[in-house]
Simulated assay, not measured.
Amino acid sequence: MTYCVALRLDRGIVFASDTRTSASVDNIAVFSKMHIWERKGDRVIVLLSAGNLAMTQSVVSLLNEGVDHGGDDERPSLLTVDTMFQAARLIGETIREVRRIDREAIEQNPSLFSASFILGGQIAEDTPRLFQIYQEGNFIEATKDTPYFQIGEHKYGKPIIDRVAKPDMRMGTAAKLLLVSFDSTLRSNLSVGMPIDLLIYRKDTLQVGEQRRLEAEDPYFRMLSKAWADALRDAFSRLEEYQTEEEPSWMKPRGLTERERERMD
């Protein structure tokens, strides 16, 4: 399992993904789930992947082959499509192609094909756009009402994003938010693990901005994790306690009898 998330803002898009892949409890490896196609001054395309690693790698490999071959009118590549919508359609078609190639194996084991993607970026003068692409190849686009997408083990990191995310957030604030979301997920699910890949794309720059990998001992992430845990405990302690009904007499603390007080003296 994995966890990937991307948040579209007025200022651009922030992406984050974990790198853990588990074939079994004793077979854990690190694979990047973040794939980038960039042509400075023209486009930045970022694809996050979750699901069966063999299947997602097949999709990415076919997309890279299309880029290497230059694309054509019949089958464009991610470096020749004119819009992010066309890029989403191309990835959807590629997913269906992988399903056709492995159809016999998938029919024998339907759970074999498990793949989902988050696509985001900007092409030329088009605005930055964000899509979630399903394993059937269809997709939806982020809006101001729903500015972010998650794939993989997303349930633990969702509540904080739902409460805090706003389109007018600063990029650094959004990056902090996604990392807090990751901290909640890491604490609750062992199938998601460090390192975390983080990428910040700023609107109209048409090149990758800040991109880094946060290891388990990263000073900022450790500070953030501790500060968030402390803040949660402090906030919880400040909440008004639930008022229970009157307790039965046998549960109420009783005062000491005269004999008990004499014994204590």
Rank of each mutant, 00 (worst) to 15 (best):
S225E: 09
P159Q: 05
S58K: 09
A88E: 06
R103H: 12
M1I: 02
S114M: 08
D183R: 06
F113H: 13
S225W: 00
F131V: 05
S22A: 14
R96G: 04
M84T: 04
Q132C: 10
V164C: 00
S32Y: 05
Y156W: 11
T94E: 06
A115C: 05
Y242K: 14
E125R: 13
Y201F: 11
D183G: 05
I106M: 06
K155L: 10
Y148G: 00
A29C: 01
R202H: 10
E246V: 10
N64R: 15
T143V: 05
R202V: 12
I160S: 04
E247C: 03
V208R: 00
Y134F: 15
A229T: 12
D18A: 01
I133H: 03
I200G: 00
P128I: 05
V67S: 09
N27F: 12
K226F: 11
T19S: 15
L119D: 03
E65N: 12
E38M: 02
A87N: 06
W37F: 14
N27G: 00
Q211G: 03
G121S: 05
I101W: 10
M169I: 04
N64Y: 04
V25H: 07
V164W: 02
S22M: 15
I106D: 04
I101S: 07
V67K: 10
D82T: 11
T143Y: 07
S188L: 14
L48M: 08
S61H: 14
K252A: 10
A16W: 01
K40S: 15
I101M: 10
